[in-house]
Amino acid sequence: MLRTKFNRALTYIVLTVWTIIVLFPLWTLIVNSFKPQNEIFADPFGLPKNFTLDGYIEVWKAGHFGLYFTNSLIVTILSLTLILFIGSMAAYALAKWKSRVSNFLYVFFIAGLMIPIRLGTIDLMRLIIALNLQNTIWSLIPVYVAMGMPIATFVLTAFIKELPNEMFDAAKVDGASEWQVYSRVVLPLMRPALATVAIFNMIKIWNDFWFPLVFIRQESARTVALGVSLLFGQYHTDWTRALAVLSLAAIPLLILYILLAREFIKGLTAGAIKG
């Protein structure tokens, strides 16, 4: 009994220390974005004494954040949907099709994890221009979907391989086609693995500013990451505004995450990768 209490206390201590380490930087970000520049340096960690919204007002006027968010949302959601859909189909085939071809393709897919994607920039740009997609948000989606394939096939294939064979056999005995097995048996079971892949890619896609930077010159097609990096460059010595820009970049995703966190963690741990 004593031992359990001691363990519990230790749990709280460890987790509380980590909570402070996680929250302190976020606290710094948010409180300082409401302070005038001088106060940031005089008192970098206290609550604002001369509360100001100047940073936000100025930054909101300079950038079109509403537009950036819409663009980022469209790009992220469409890319993620496609990644999960075609990625899981491919993973199912890679896991269950026993042949040399599928072994080779598996390695071929994950090879994409190992080369910096920037290397292919020029070729990709020529391709985007040939498809006449430059300066639109549509230029980003095929690139992001392709970028998502290695991690999707890697994680999902590993997951399907861990599933017990009996599940598939039972469905097959009932005369289900591969497509039915995939859509009725595998997809529902794969929820946690899909969540992992979604989260991995979502963060990469939402925060990528390299491809928007080279593909897009039009203001109307800017994403949050690109808009933020440009505004951040513009205000890098004006800390109130820089912090306002960074807060505006961080907060929406943060709120979205906190709202969905329960679902996400549940989804991840519900099926679980069986040991």
């Binding site: 920039t121 020029i122 740009m125 221009i129 930077l213 010159r217 440009l230 951040f232 460059g233």
Partner: peptide, 23 residues
């Protein structure tokens, strides 16, 4: 006027010039 952050300027300008999409 369409500026790029100084650390990225050379690389983006060059990639755009090489593919015919430069300013």
């Amino acid at each position: 006027f369409d500026p790029t952050n100084p650390p990225d300027y050379n690389a983006t300008l060059r990639s755009q010039l090489e593919t015919g999409t430069g300013p």
